[in-house]
């Protein structure tokens, strides 16, 4: 979907990070979902390594 296609669509937003950005969008009636974002696997290196090893095997 190109940039010009985007201009013709209704904006539907996924917000990752600061909640206030999502609140502002909702206050304007924009379709938006806020992601309760956390670093993958808590950002802990050991977990991330495990996760990538497991995912490689799949």
């Amino acid at each position: 979907m190109s940039v010009n296609d985007l201009f013709k669509q209704e904006l539907k937003v996924v917000n990752l990070g600061l909640k206030s950005f999502h609140t502002d969008l909702k206050s304007q009636g924009v379709t938006a979902v806020h992601v309760n974002w956390k670093p993958k696997a808590g950002g802990k290196k050991k977990m991330l390594d495990l996760l990538s090893k497991i995912n490689k095997v799949k």
């Binding site: 539907k12 937003v13 917000n15 992601v35 974002w37």
Partner: peptide
């Protein structure tokens, strides 16, 4: 409450914009 981008995209069909304000390293 989706905890990931992937889950959120499934929650809003037709999602076309992601606003990212998470810490820089992620």
């Amino acid at each position: 409450q989706p905890s990931s981008l992937h889950a959120a995209i499934q929650a809003i069909p037709g999602a076309n914009m992601v606003v990212v304000s998470v810490p820089g390293q992620y």
